[in-house]
Design a protein around this nucleic acid. Structure first.
Lengths: 229, 229, 229, 229
DNA sequence: GATGAATGAGGTTTCATTCAT
DNA sequence: TATGAATGAAACCTCATTCAT
């Protein structure tokens, strides 16, 4: 509800609203072109690509690029934020429209992995910054927390699963998507199913304690059959 | 004996054979120092670190480094292969010593994630090369296949879980380890438990078909309670 | 009349005369705004400032700026010329009103250094172009020559002081003003006094020969007391 | 005595001392070549020249240049410091060898302006940094202070002349040298003589108060004849 | 064989000037 | 005509690799 706001401050494409200043039309088109090109290029090659590639692909000069984004990193962050934001909006809407809490949760993963996770830059960001952006992380956390609560209230989710667990899982699966994108696309869906099954309330064994900043008791695991007793 | 530090598992020097030329001792010591330093540096900073950092840390000059490894990438691959290989040997030994097939499998994951996955270069390699090396991938695949078979034969593993699934899972969890290494170390163990629970034969729902190079039917998932009927 | 854009101190618009074409008024206002802003910005930061800073400060777009001044250097020269010119007019007027020739001379320096020399662009111009402009240099030379003649005729000035000497002195002191503008403003007045004292006819020792394009005899100087004998 | 130490920490050209490590010979030669080229280029064009020009002139690649000096500014500062330092050493030695205090003072100016002041970078540094370097400024100040004291003790210098005055004068005259370097080289000597005459104890009129951070009383000056009464 | 200085292509960023709106 | 976005040629700096000592 309250979350998943517009990723960009000014939608600018609001119908019936003529562009206030005629000059901005081109600029906005260029900015969009840059962001699109950057999105694609970053997604494909990660955050280390030559900025020139982006300039070339978007059909603008270097100066234009740097007029819109004062820094390469700025561009990257903006792109990530936008992609993430628009994805989050979709995901939220879709989740809201889904009545079954479990379907909402699994649909969320499904959509996220389909949409975002082939994106090299996004996956990189998980390891280099802990997610695209602080804001992204926050919003995403809130959203996932909502999904978790719904499932928990319905008794579908393993009781001690935390939101952090789900967030971490999403990042983890993103990597899987990237890994198999070329060779075996779609294989990640099997991993997703496995994980979801592991999350279900059928599993009663408690999860190991997180123990922040400390190595938790390394008691590894036991044969699954034991959990029934 | 004391010389000839196997970079590759192949022993390379027949025992009892004294070093023919006095220089070899130094060279071998240097090579070892480089590999150790490179291992640490790559693990910490990933594959993009300045080669000089490695030279500095190993106490040799750039020329020496490049005499042993014609290319930065060569060094990286060799290091990954060695680290991976020695880890694999340990893992294999440990798994062989474990009678309970499920324990063997979970112990494998536990050890792998503990040993390898804090390693930035390794995790990077999953996304950039599909694993450290072809040889690594092969050996690892064979090993995991062995573990899978044992579990399968014992009826502990979900019947349609493939070795590819387990390989992918290991890479996926590696990412999770890296992500939370600083902020919440050990949280990955919770994910591991969840995944293992999802892998257990208690889950009877079939996994989605891989369908290579094609989008498999996107039927996402349903509430977990349904699977019993 | 109203057209014809004087770069020189001539006021430019006869009063009571309506602008023939409406646009010209705006254009003239813009030009003035640009020159004022440029004057301030160049004075503060020197000739290397970003042109945009000037455009911003003057409230006009880049296009307008470049319509009025085809080149950054053009703008700089025009500004320098104007500032210099208006200062020169003041100085001339003031000097004319001063009866005491020596007071006229010292007042000239005083006013120049107060008005112009905090100006980074002006001082820079001395070293990069030998003064703001050829025209400036000419007019300034003529003016100083006049002052020199008056002092000389009154027997107040050292007999072999040339106009070039005085011109050079003014540039030299300008640098002093700039150097101490922040740390010790006003210190230059001490230097000025010293220089003026050195210029007075009390000093009878002849000055070294200029010897154009040649190293004059390097006979350095002797203790001042000796000069009487 | 205590001042005017070696500008570079290691003279390196000390006779009879073989270079400790053979490798350094080339490097040192390159470093010297770079500093020489940079000295010339900076002197001629100021601190804004393209670094490539220096690389080209010194016959080394960009990397070499940046190996020795991590930053363009670093190079500039080092060059200035060295030039200044070696000049200062000479100047000090020469001054010490001169018995007549006034000759020592005027010789100092003479030498400084001959040696340093055709140097664009040095003069620039007066306005942008208040001198080449903090260390330079300090040492120079101490040196000039010594000269001033000697003259003062001999009763040759105007009593209220401060060391700051002399420092400022030197910077001011530097500018004069630069200004006339091409057109009328040597003219600055006339200015120097005038200034020195103005500094002599024959001038009894007190200098205006510095009044730090405040506009001192603007009483400009009067005809020189008045000072006798 | 070892060393680390040298190389120079390539990366990011700036800014005087032009041009579409 | 005014605007300010677009341009792209440098400028500074990095780093994988080579080479003289």
């Amino acid at each position: 509800m309250t979350l998943a706001d517009q990723p960009t401050p000014v939608p600018d494409g609001a119908p019936g609203q003529p562009a206030k200043r005629g000059r901005r039309a081109d600029a906005e088109r260029n900015r969009a072109a840059i962001m699109e090109a950057a999105g694609a290029v970053f997604a494909e090659h990660g955050g280390t690509v030559d900025v020139r590639e982006i300039a070339r692909r978007s059909g603008v000069g270097m100066g234009t690029l740097y007029r819109h984004f004062p820094t390469k990193d700025d561009l990257l962050l903006t792109v990530l934020e936008k992609q993430f934001g628009s994805w989050l909006a979709d995901a939220h809407q879709q989740a809201t429209a889904t009545e079954d809490p479990w379907q909402a949760l699994s649909g969320f993963f499904e959509q996220m992995l389909t949409t975002q996770a082939g994106n090299r830059a996004v996956v990189e960001s998980y390891t280099t910054r802990g997610g695209p952006t602080a804001s992204c992380a926050q919003r995403c956390y809130a959203f996932i927390d909502e999904l978790r609560t719904r499932c928990m209230d319905a008794g579908l989710l393993r009781p001690d699963v935390t939101t952090d667990d789900l967030v971490l899982l999403s990042g983890s699966l993103s990597q899987a998507v990237l890994t198999t994108a070329d060779s075996r696309p779609g294989q990640w869906r099997r991993l997703l199913r496995i994980s979801l099954d592991g999350l279900s309330s059928r599993n009663t064994e408690p999860l190991p304690e997180p123990a922040p900043s400390t190595e938790p008791e390394p008691e590894p695991s036991t044969s699954p059959g034991r959990s029934t007793s």
